[in-house]
């Protein structure tokens, strides 16, 4: 379980998050909606250790393995490495962080890309991929490291409306395999359709339904 207790974060004098509490289990799709500027992105940046928080706790229990970053993040702009092919985007962290051999990393990366419908695009570079394909490479890169929880920053914002359904199904697939999914979005229709836990972030983070 990922448990957030009384999390607060300010930038200078500006309080962005105040006493945030919530829980996500593995297999959940927790979707947090809310208007722009309310701190949604800051919240998942705290979860994925990109941002330090001022007070409160983030606890992760029942971990599969001890590691430094148990929470992955798929960025809104994906942040793929442009000088590496789709395959290398996935193998590079596997080789450097997980210390896999090149062969093992490539085998795993190819399987992951295939499972996300990206066969034949292994050697493509970022500029050769469409928005949806970039997103899948970014998802594959994050999943390769076997995170306990995976955060998504506005996963539907760069996509055509037909592809939103694909993203939703992909999230379900990821959750089904036992990874906790945490999504922030302003897309309420998407949120209501796919969330197993729906939160709204305003002054406070409120659970809408579960």
């Amino acid at each position: 379980m990922l448990k957030v207790e009384n999390l607060s974060k300010s930038f200078g004098d500006k309080k962005v998050l105040e006493n945030i509490n919530f829980e996500v289990n593995k297999g959940d799709i927790a979707i947090i909606t809310g208007p722009s500027g309310v701190g949604k992105t800051t919240l998942i940046r705290c979860l994925s250790s990109l941002e330090k928080y001022d007070s409160g706790k983030i606890e992760i229990s029942e971990r599969r393995e001890e590691k430094q970053y148990p929470v992955g993040l798929v960025f809104q702009g994906f942040n793929l490495f442009p000088h590496l092919s789709a395959l290398e985007n996935i193998t590079f962290p596997l080789i450097k962080v997980k210390k896999h051999s090149k062969e093992k990393a490539e085998k795993q990366a190819k399987e992951l890309l295939a499972s996300l419908g990206l066969e034949g695009l292994e050697e493509s570079y970022e500029y050769q991929l469409s928005g949806g394909q970039k997103q899948r490479v970014a998802i594959a890169r994050a999943l390769a490291l076997n995170p306990e929880y995976l955060c998504f920053d506005e996963p539907t914002s760069a996509l055509d409306s037909e592809l939103r359904e694909d993203v939703g199904e992909m999230l379900r697939g990821i959750a089904k395999k036992g990874t906790g999914v945490i999504v922030i979005t302003h897309d309420k229709i998407f949120a209501e359709k796919y969330a197993t836990k729906l939160y709204e972030l305003g002054e406070q983070l409120e659970l809408r339904n579960s």
Binding site: S48, Y69, G72, L73, N79, H83, F92
Partner: peptide, 27 residues
Amino acid sequence: ISEGQYEASKVLGLSKRDTYFGVILPQ
């Protein structure tokens, strides 16, 4: 080089050394 490249490296757990030599310098 955009901040996003550093952040992606950090979230993936890459060391500072691997980030600099594998991600930043080639670009």
